[in-house]
Design a protein around this nucleic acid. Structure first.
Lengths: 197, 197, 197, 197
DNA sequence: AATGAATGAGAGTTCATTCAT
DNA sequence: GATGAATGAACTCTCATTCAT
């Protein structure tokens, strides 16, 4: 309220380059938490606040809401891709990783409904891009005789179905329901876990 | 400082009582359309606008958002119930009706994800009420040897899966995808059509 | 369907940080004026408009209606408290200060009706908090033989009565009527003026 | 919802003339109750609902909000006038009646702040008209040596002060506080009761 | 005369986004 | 680069008032 220039009153540090990367990471982590708590509709300001940065910083790193979501989801998709790219990868294992992300991240669920739905109202455009990356990763591993190989759509429809089984449920229920879903589909799934190399 | 008496001049038509039923119908139709386009989160004001009535009219007919949604979805649920209550009802037929509504109404899709998820964030409470009505209707018809009868959750998980298969897709795609989904589940489905007695 | 990005074109000035203090002051001043004219029930939007700021700014500075009112009235109450805390304070002098604020601020009048009326319909809760501060300040100075010391309620009832005498009247009339009121109560009042140290 | 002319389906009676008077009475009674519960700001629709009539009826009988308030308050004022017009009326008795209405009707309190304040913002115009009727009634009885007779304003200022003492308090507290107020003013008050001839 | 539906203007609140510092 | 205040539109919900029936 006074006119003092607030000389050095604990003014937030400005560490230059280093800070930028740190802030980006903080934002991504914060977004993950906030999304988990409030869903994809959470106010961006909440993310900035949780990350401990100003809202301007958020906009510096991410031009819009979609960019934030993509940044979060990209990590999930990448793990699926990496699992699929591993030398000894097989379908069941990769579906295990996929399922792990499905149960872990409520935000991730949404994009798996999106295959072939680019530009559809309600389906953010980034979702189909991510969905396609998942599809490419999986299709490469689809053995000819696989339950989901006979009809072209089946693979991603099945994935969407499992997503549907977990939508709207808590983390705890999601794993159970996802397993049940794969079982009903008659598809074998490997251990449900994150992929880290 | 309370309420202005209305700018004056040219107060638009007041069609009197007769309009009541007409307006309600227009609101329901508009809501169905808007929901189909924007999902259940659509602004109520958009519904009123589309219906060609003032917002007050919407609030007269429906005290709150849940009432609007329920009014729309109730009709879908009721048809499923009626199909299930028919003398010669069998599971496949009723699933056909269910599937018809799934393809017809984007809004209906949402509630089928809601089973057992009452009070979950993002899952409005009326959704689980409706979901339970669907469950009761279906479970009565579930023959002992049915593919979905072995585990208790299976029935509604399967329904949620089919919903997941169609979420985010257009009317046209929905029927195809829903059929594919049931096929992947190995569940027989009768003709996909509305139930009208 | 959530929030539009702003119509575009000609986004009005954003004076940056400096404006914060200026805006807060403008809001307080505007609130004082509007309250004086319309009472505590005045629309918050009128205050923002009068202050020349967007409604968002008002909400940034004051989370709710009570915060606005408190910010305005706090200053009045504080002066009474300070007058009462002065080394050589005596009842008559402090009542002079009280009376000055009563004539100066129509909003201040309202809270003096609130003693012991916490949570009463129409009596906002902050009003009784402020009322109690006034009571504490005055009671400390109440000499044993004072006209208002014999019965416990008398002090604040008398204050409420003087408030009643001025409610609904113009600034000019208020001083005259307040003096008349104290005279009718047989209570001596010092010079009617603000306290500034 | 059907198109039937609802032949005689319990259509609300339309008893002609008689009903008009009955409705008016119901509206006044309802307004009294609603005002007591919700204050003068209560929605007019609530009054109509409580009275069991359509809103149109309310508007037929009372052109606007002020007219409703006046109708209610008129009854209070009339009793004071009648008490003052009684053959053996004396000041103390009439003040007792006045005080009774002050404690009985929260709505009545407001108008007694209004003397000489016609057209003041926040002071509805009908209030000063009613206030003047009260003043006329009382002044006629003011004996020359009365405590409130020496200065011209004193009478109504005193009344406003007592109103101020009770504003914002519950029925129960009001009587106590009003008595305390008159005592502090050194004015004798007769039994606090309604006047009924 | 009564009914009660319709109207639409606010009031309150929340947020995406910009921008001076 | 970071900060965080400002902006204002959009959304929900409430009412005073009118008017066809």
């Amino acid at each position: 309220m006074t006119q003092q220039p607030m000389s050095d009153e604990r003014r937030p540090a400005n560490d230059g380059r280093k800070a930028a990367a740190r802030n980006r990471a903080a934002l991504v982590a914060a977004a993950r938490e906030i999304y988990a708590e409030c869903g994809l509709e959470a106010p961006l300001s909440a993310i900035a606040r949780r990350a401990g940065v100003g809202q301007g910083v958020l906009y510096r790193h991410f031009p819009d809401r979609a960019a934030v979501a993509t940044a979060i989801l990209d990590e999930n998709v990448r793990q699926v891709e990496q699992a699929a790219a591993a030398r000894d990868a097989d379908m069941a294992q990769v579906l295990g990783v996929l399922t792990w992300h499905l149960t872990e991240s409520a935000a991730f669920i949404g994009i798996l409904h999106a295959d072939g739905a680019a530009g559809r109202s309600g389906v953010p455009s980034y979702a189909s891009a991510l969905s396609e990356r998942v599809e490419r990763a999986l299709r490469r591993l689809l053995p000819d005789g696989h339950r989901l190989a006979s009809v072209n759509d089946d693979l991603m429809i099945a994935v969407a179905m499992v997503s549907g089984a977990v939508t709207g449920h808590t983390r705890e229920e999601r794993e159970h329901r996802a397993r049940a879903a794969w079982r009903l589909l008659g598809v074998e799934v490997g251990p449900v876990r994150s992929y880290d190399g």
